[in-house]
Design a protein around this nucleic acid. Structure first.
Lengths: 333, 333
DNA sequence: CTCCAGAGTGTTTGCGTTCACACTACGGTG
DNA sequence: CACCGTAGTGTGAACGCAAACACTCTGGAG
């Protein structure tokens, strides 16, 4: 305590401006009813002294932290990262502080991360929960603050913000079908990932609805490497593959190339996400775009509304968008 | 203030345990000289009440925030993101709180971000400064806290943590030369990016040292799209291209493919960074790997040492590593 | 001229914690 | 047996701010 340099306090500012510290507080908080001359003197004193309000004292006095926790999966993937950046920005714009922490998907790690966040008395939480395990851990602790869910694909509505996975999948399948494909195989994301399951379920539902052949699914883990590995398990009779994300599509196309299978000449491939690299893969990848930034911003809107006691904004899942490039052609074209 | 629910305080715990609040504090802070029985009673009371220490009050009393700011460029690229996650993790492991905020590279945005961070009275700062502009803004404000620099490529030593850009570039050039290339062209990162300039300078130095042909440089902006655009400006006499990063290499290879130029048959390409997708590009990309996570962790080590008043750890730039794949062959192979 | 309303400002208290210091009880020493 | 050191614990103040309340002017109505 002794060796810590403390900056000027309100009292110092007040002394210099010849007013009371309360007046300084009022100026700072934009209260009405301050004589312009007084306000100017206070402002000048603040500038002179380089005064900054002490956040700790403020939050102790008010009992509010102005902090919102953000739990981020520790994989530097384009989607979650984009959403996170959007969340951070929106939070700051709303005058809130983002308290972010990364975590792996195991229960212990999540629990520890939540301990950290709740320990800093966050007022709300953005939970990026790619797996049910993460969701379960979070559910296990009664949270007295509002929580917005990301990456859960609509689960926990209306508190979840998402892109409509089912609609995105249908966009993909219908595009393949429009090109004449009936034997479509699916490389899924990891079994524990909520969005992977949603895409898988939607894939099954849509192929059944359209009466398409049912080919075995191949499970990947989102990584390009797993897409590559999946390449050796592609059904010989398949004419198109719907990949759970773009990275796996990249790996798959690599593997196919090694086996002399041309995309899209011999096999069509469609991805999901539309990462920036998708446009420059060989061939450029036809895929389903998700607006990650918008999703992140909307999550903050939800929390801000909740904190203000207002009605929540509309959180029906946002539409995905088909991006047509060159990895899809007719079967046997 | 009235409508805010406040949790139990030290006094509540003390009352329940039949001790003074000071004893509770001592137990919490792990002071020696507490009778085991007393400690147990306090611990039990804490558990019963679900007591959590109030961070605001603590930091007001100590004058320390335990918070370390992290300034992140708002581009969700693999490298910075990986480093950021490593920083966040290391900070938490060190008992510090990461206060992260993203920013674009313009002065105003950076200034605003720094306002935010310093306004929360951070004790140290991890500055991810990809451009000189960011560095300049940060320099303009006298910071009384230690700052660790990332992405500056060794500038601001010993406070900067980086991968040795020069050595990485030499690795790349030497690899190309070993394959018989003498006409190597360079696609640079954006002119304002520090690391881009370092790579460029190292490229010039190394090609001169080896007496290689001097071909015009092409400026990109790190994006795959800019690499693609660069494709139409590749010198016809070049036999190899050294790309400032992997994404640009991806775009370049795409553009070359469109013009019927095979990689590496007709032109060799080498990247930089080794993003996870590099292994599955067509062809798999030979590139220079940077250990982003290690760099992030080391930045925290620097700050922790500085805060503890200890000697700084060794921050000589870390070595880059050549990853040989298939995008490099002999000229006219 | 007195009174009152209200604009503008000051005073006091409390937020939950740590720090500095004070106190108590107990055992050993001279 | 008085004394002192020390282990264990308590007391009061301070941290910087916001909230509640109290005060002092000024000008206009009566």
């Amino acid at each position: 305590m002794a060796n810590v340099v403390r900056g000027p306090s309100m009292h110092d500012v007040a002394a210099r401006a010849g007013v009371s510290h309360q007046t300084v507080s009022r100026v700072l908080n934009g209260f009405a009813g301050i004589r312009p001359g007084t306000r100017d003197r206070v402002l000048a004193a603040i500038a002179d002294l380089g005064y900054r309000r002490n956040v700790a004292a403020r939050s102790l006095a008010t009992g509010r932290s102005q902090a919102v926790g953000v739990l981020i999966p520790n994989t530097p993937d384009f989607g979650p990262t984009s959403s996170f950046y959007a969340v951070e920005r929106a939070l700051r714009d709303a005058g809130l502080q983002a308290l972010s922490t990364t975590t792996s998907n195991d229960a212990e790690s999540v629990d520890e991360a939540l301990d950290f966040l709740f320990g800093r008395s966050i007022e709300a939480l953005v939970l990026m929960a790619p797996t049910r395990a993460v969701l379960d851990v979070a559910d296990a602790r009664a949270s007295d603050v509002p929580v917005a869910y990301l990456l859960t694909g609509g689960e926990r509505a209306p508190w979840s913000v998402s892109v409509d996975q089912g609609q995105g999948v249908r966009l993909a399948i219908d595009h393949l079908v429009a090109h004449g494909h009936t034997r479509i195989q699916h490389i899924t994301g990891p079994a524990d990932a909520t969005e992977a399951q949603l895409r898988k379920n939607a894939f099954v539902a849509e192929t059944m609805r359209l009466g398409l052949s049912r080919l075995p699914m191949i499970e990947g883990d989102w990584s390009a490497q797993s897409g590559f590995d999946a390449g050796s398990h592609v059904d010989p009779s398949a004419t198109a593959v719907f990949c759970g994300n773009d990275q796996m599509a990249l790996g798959l196309i690599h593997a196919l190339g090694l086996r002399g299978v041309g995309v899209p000449r011999q096999l069509s491939v469609i991805g999901f996400d539309d990462i920036p690299e998708a446009a420059h893969m060989m061939p450029p990848l036809t895929t389903i775009r998700q607006d990650f930034r918008r999703v992140g911003a909307l999550a903050v809107d939800v929390l801000v509304a909740a904190l203000a006691g207002e009605d929540l904004p509309d959180t029906t899942p946002l539409p995905a968008e088909l991006i047509v490039r060159e990895s899809v052609a007719g079967p046997g074209a």
